[in-house]
Design a protein around this nucleic acid. Structure first.
Lengths: 249, 249
DNA sequence: AAGTGGTCTAGACCACCAT
DNA sequence: TGGTGGTCTAGACCACTTA
């Protein structure tokens, strides 16, 4: 590998980037918890011995990454996994030409097991490490549209019970956050087309062999560590997966 | 509809936003052309009678939207549709678990016709207005993986010929930009699963009825006006469509 | 050495929210 | 009224590129 230097890109780390890194760590450590206000910009400037402008650039980056939310006159708050946020950032299926809609989630199965090869790799754990596996059926406008199979490392979610999952008041990511202090910060998705197997066909009330959109997703935490591995199968007969590129203001 | 005010969100338009808007217009007008350097920050500050910090915030926004590219020590340049940019921003298919790769594009057909209902709606033109239609076959690692059907309004591309399309030295978007001064700034994509019809099956060397990923894309210009309507059908047997959400730094 | 963008500062003032 | 984030300024200095 050549150690090429990209023209116009410096090598030193600016102060505001270092400050951003420290604040990310404070978030990952749980020093500032979801819903909390972080210290005022003037106080942070004092604490770190930098100017307010530098603090603002660091917070700007955190706000761009949706880790904190600024509110003029009130403060800057650590982002929480509420429904709207989930719908906006992590749920990309909508009716053909229609508006987003929050899915009704029905738990189909819940089990503890040993990680297979793929799960272990995606969750960065050892093969045969304990995992929880859940299957959910998601309804849009009353119709079953999506089958979600998800796996999480049992070690990250000590004491998780089926009841917790079934009775959760808000989204699944909200449960991770409230009950286990785990925040999903980003995700990486891969999509393919496939055909319905017998199980999926039955759940989605489709003929076997009907085309399905498959979404494989790894959800990552504040430090980039994998939290959840999810395989979604979507009936796209009347729904679409949408993605906007380069959208702005 | 209630005219709800969102807490913590002011109503006035800041100077740097207004400046950003003016600069976007200058780009859309072609006052600064792709590849050109825009005036130095200090000069822009003088011209508009604002401070450098304000100019920088405006340019920051344009750089975030990938409309300009900053290079320390050299200047700030209007973005061009080169291969790398295209690959990075507008091409989202890669081999399973592998690295991105630039597709080899083969023109299958080129024709002039009248816009059907869908084309007219997507391109924001009247039904039966003249359009150019192209079909391309895209190869990855020597295999035909994607069939692209695209439509553009003939009025926007006066004098476009099949030869131009066939002999273009770089990407299709680069042709739009160089020969017609049209820049694609963003795109909106909708994905579904379907099965191969006879035509697609033959081109992709698949059995009829094989599952295909369908991508419907509208490419938008600097002013948000629709430029191109494209339907891509992808054989995802060994390839994937990828999307990262909330990725940073 | 001259010119460019990048960082960082110090502070004034504004807009908004809670009390 | 006091505290918060948002805007805007003016300037020093640094990092990088080009000639």
């Amino acid at each position: 590998m050549t150690d090429a230097t990209v023209p116009g890109v410096p090598l030193t780390v600016p102060l505001y980037r270092e400050l951003e890194r420290q604040m990310r760590e404070a978030l990952a450590r749980g020093e500032w918890k979801p819903g909390d206000a972080i210290p005022a910009e003037r106080r942070l400037a004092e604490r770190y011995g930098v100017s307010i402008g530098t603090v603002r650039k660091a917070i700007d980056a955190l706000a761009d990454a949706n880790l904190v939310i600024r509110q003029q006159g009130r403060g800057t708050f650590v982002a929480t996994h509420n429904r709207d946020r989930m719908l906006f950032y992590f749920f990309h299926v909508a009716p053909e030409g229609g508006a987003k809609e929050y899915p009704v989630v029905k738990l189909v199965s819940f089990a503890r097991g040993k990680a297979d090869r793929v799960e272990a790799e995606r969750l960065a754990i050892a093969a045969a490490d304990p995992v929880f596996r859940m299957r959910n059926l998601l309804f849009l406008s009353g119709e079953p549209i999506i089958v979600d199979d998800l796996a999480i490392a049992a070690a990250r979610f000590p004491g998780l019970t089926e009841k917790q999952f079934r009775d959760r008041p808000s989204t699944i990511y909200n449960l991770y956050q409230d009950a286990f202090g785990i925040t999903v910060a980003r995700s990486s998705e891969r999509l393919r087309a496939t055909v319905a197997d017998a199980e999926a066909a039955a759940l989605l009330r489709l003929p076997r062999g009907a085309p399905l959109l498959v979404i494989r997703r790894v959800a990552l935490g504040l430090g980039g560590e994998p939290i959840e591995w999810r395989v979604s199968r979507v009936n796209t007969a009347h729904h679409e997966y949408f993605v906007d590129i380069g959208a702005a203001t």
